[in-house]
Design a protein around this nucleic acid. Structure first.
Length: 462
RNA sequence: GGCGGCGUGGCCGAGUGGUUAGGCAGGGGCCUGCAAAGCCCCGUACUCCGGUUCGAAUCCGGACGCCGCCUCCA
């Protein structure tokens, strides 16, 4: 039984799939107007981990994550760079998938685009107008939040309270400052689509309603996103579905923020700003491990120091893969790894499962796995090779269930380096330590880290 | 103003009414020709002030500090 915190009820609740054996989840994706930043990376990783765990538990997951490819920011950027909105969106969407691929985030089952759903959005907005829960103004169509009795559910505040804190807005035609745009009338030169409400484009909050209901159906299981989407974005999605009487997401989940210490993220010094920057200089798995070591609802500190910390922790895991020649798991595939769980491996799997089932408690699961790493080496040191090998494999499979691949990073070496290795082995056999050390230095100069194992000199990239 | 969250050992980061989180860094030891990797041991932390309790870092109250949302930010 998998339990997950539900932002709508404020408690950890069992996730009960609508259709037995299947899980329909929707994750709000990015607006593609700039390079993805660390926060985008976190939500992608968190929900990828959730998806993989559900899959590992035997559910078939329908994972939908959208791309918002028409938006004010895209229009602004296109204008600024004297290019087209389509060009801007295509460029940054490309960057988005590239970054996700590097992070090892599995491709969504469906990745709908807002611009492909405009017609459906127009239909939905028309229904809202027909039901008199939306109204036209000089610049578009707005949703009347007062028509939804429990508006504010996700925000945890009643409508009046939300309204009281809202800032004054220029638009005099809105009935409430909380009313939001369903349709925006096109200004000269902007992209536009035809509609009964005039030429224009959809507001942001409608696309997810249409796409989730279309691809996952009414009463889908799980709707996820960053904490900042809880209100107003998700509240407004809910409101539209509620106003139409259509069952919407049955469970809401939100991930916490990426923090960068006291300093704002900036390109100066060692602060990272974009995912692209981070991935250019670190092993993508280090970011996944960093994200896994914090609970998904907690803020996580991302600095050069915490990335370096995670990178070194990762080296410990890779060392396990080297010693036990573990297969590389957790690739793009979401196939469940069938292993025969026995003894300590079974106990480990049970412990990890218990923690992940409990609101996706990855930090405790990771802690258990690190303890198992120590235990594995100790078993091997005692000569209990079979048990050690099994436990090592269990560690790899369970990290794989969270999308983290352990890598035996010994690589093919060039003939020259191989020659140096051979000469070093010969020197060591002859107990010519000075010569052996000299050859180690030479290998080091070639970028190899030298380790002496039972089988002789072994080199790897540091 | 309203709502919500947080303050843990050098750093990151879990957890919990009383028994070791974990990682990284650091110290000591073992192994090794020397290293590397690995194993063993070590820190005895929980913003402050009250209260409840046999016992609180964990519950309650207050203070201080920090942060988020109430603006189409993941």
């Amino acid at each position: 039984m998998i339990r997950l915190y539900d932002s709508a009820t404020g408690e950890v609740r069992e996730v009960r799939p609508r259709d037995p054996g299947r899980l329909a989840m929707y994750v709000c994706g990015p607006t593609v107007y700039d390079l993805p930043h660390l926060g985008h990376g976190r939500f992608a990783l968190v929900w990828d981990v959730a998806r993989r765990w559900f899959t590992f538990r035997g559910l078939v997951v329908d994972y939908v994550s959208n791309v918002t490819d028409i938006d004010d920011k895209i229009i602004a950027r296109a204008a600024r760079e004297a290019t087209s909105e389509h060009e801007v969106a295509a460029t940054y969407e490309d960057e988005w998938w590239r970054a996700l691929a590097r992070l090892g985030v599995a491709a969504p089952t469906h990745a709908p685009h807002a611009t492909h759903y405009v017609e459906s959005m127009v239909t939905l907005i028309g229904e809202l107008v027909a039901r008199d829960v939306a109204y036209r103004t000089g610049d578009g169509v707005y949703f009347d939040v007062a028509c939804v009795p429990d508006y504010g559910l996700l925000a945890g505040q009643p409508l009046d309270s939300l309204r009281a804190g809202a800032r004054v807005e220029a638009n005099e035609e809105k009935r409430s400052v909380l009313d939001f745009a369903l349709w925006k009338a096109a200004k000269p030169g902007e992209p536009h689509w035809a509609s009964p409400f005039g030429e224009g484009r959809p507001g942001w909050h409608t696309e997810c309603v249409v796409m989730s209901l279309d691809l996952l159906g009414e009463g889908f299981d799980l709707h996820c996103g960053g904490l900042d989407l809880k209100f107003p974005h998700h509240e407004n999605e809910r409101a539209q579905a509620a106003a139409l009487g259509r069952p919407f997401a049955r469970h809401w989940a939100h991930n916490g923020w990426v923090m960068v210490g006291e300093q704002k993220m900036s390109k100066s010094l060692d602060n990272f700003t974009t995912l692209t920057d981070l991935l250019a200089r670190t092993d993508p798995r280090a970011y996944r491990l960093l994200v896994l070591r914090a609970h998904y609802r907690s803020p996580v500190e991302v600095t050069a120091a915490t990335i370096a910390d995670a990178t070194r922790a990762l080296e410990r895991l890779d060392a396990l893969a080297r010693r036990f020649a573990l297969p590389r798991l957790a690739g793009a595939s979401l196939v469940r790894d069938e292993v025969e769980w026995r003894g300590e491996a079974a106990a480990l799997a049970a412990a990890v499962g218990t923690h992940l089932d409990d609101d996706l408690n990855t930090p405790v699961a990771v802690a258990a796995l690190f303890e198992a790493v120590t235990r594995t080496h100790a078993l091997a040191d005692e000569g209990r090779a079979d048990e050690a090998g099994q436990l090592a494999l269990a560690v790899a499979v369970l990290f794989g269930a969270m999308g983290l691949a352990l890598e035996d990073r010994r690589e093919e070496i060039d003939a020259h380096s191989a020659e140096l290795v051979a000469r070093r082995d010969a020197a060591r056999a002859a107990r010519d330590w000075a010569r052996a050390d000299e050859l180690r230095d030479q290998l080091g100069a070639q970028g190899w880290l030298v380790e002496d194992g039972p089988a002789g000199t072994v080199v790897r990239r540091p």
